[in-house]
Design a protein around this nucleic acid. Structure first.
Lengths: 140, 140
DNA sequence: TTGACTGCAAAGCGTTTGCAGAGAG
DNA sequence: CTCTCTGCAAACGCTTTGCAGTCAA
């Protein structure tokens, strides 16, 4: 995923929904497009500020909510910390969190996905979304 | 699990740790022992109040924190709602949440557990704890 | 031009905590 | 008798929101 493409596709999707691209939003979209970690709202605000964009934390939250509503980013909430955000245009994956370093590793396992769907189906349900997080520690 | 046994084992565990069994705590332990759903702090406070025990919400939180620290109950946090609590003396299980009714179904799948451990091990990690939640809807 | 946007500061929510008095052991 | 506990109310951290002014289209 090329960063400029991603930033551009964010803009287009927002414009398509009649949402205005303000200076503040453009800056945030650039930052989000350039993100390969899982920053929280405060981190994004700090990055925007560092980049010279005068953006308030309230606007960061409002923009994140908008992007999430449009399905462009995903909110992930790990135990005991503020919500983090990641671009939605990746293959679905789950998260492994190293509790000692805080490092987040993404992983995907087809069989786990299938098993979840089977379990739900057996009980007469379909899965709308799910959350799977492994809180781990490096083996010695 | 017989309720009185559970309430008693809570008391014993707390006493063993030098924690006093006050009137308020005794009432909460009884209520928690009698729980087969997943109440949050407010619900527990309401139940305690209904049972005639004068217990403040602060004490409910403090008691829950103590019980969790002792490993007697587990805190579970579903997306977008206050934390809920469940007795710890059950087989490990995960949760399926019917997003339409709010109903919580517990399930357990050995293969999913194994796969998680394998994935972690492959990447050089061991799992300390994990969280798996399926947000589902009844099939038509 | 005008309606959506912004920053600010205040409010919201669930949860935690400092304090002075109450009560378990 | 002591030391932990309780209730209260205030503070907490993260997030949302009302308002009056600002700016993209």
């Amino acid at each position: 995923m090329i960063i400029e493409d991603r930033a551009q596709s964010y803009e287009e999707a927002l414009r398509r929904s009649g949402i205005r691209i303000t200076r503040q939003r453009a800056a945030l979209l650039r930052i989000l497009a350039d993100t390969d970690d899982h920053p929280d709202a405060t981190a994004l605000h700090a990055r925007a500020t560092a980049a010279g964009a005068g953006v308030s934390l309230a606007t960061v939250y409002r923009t994140l909510a908008e992007l999430e509503a449009q399905g462009l980013i995903h909110k992930v909430e790990f135990v005991g910390e503020p919500a983090r955000y990641e671009p939605a245009d990746q293959r679905h994956h789950d998260h492994m969190i190293d509790v000692e370093t805080g490092q987040v590793v993404e992983f995907f396992n087809e069989r786990i996905e299938k098993l979840q769907a089977e379990i739900a189906a057996e009980m007469g349900y379909e899965i709308l979304r799910h959350r799977l997080e492994l809180y781990v520690r490096k083996l010695p």
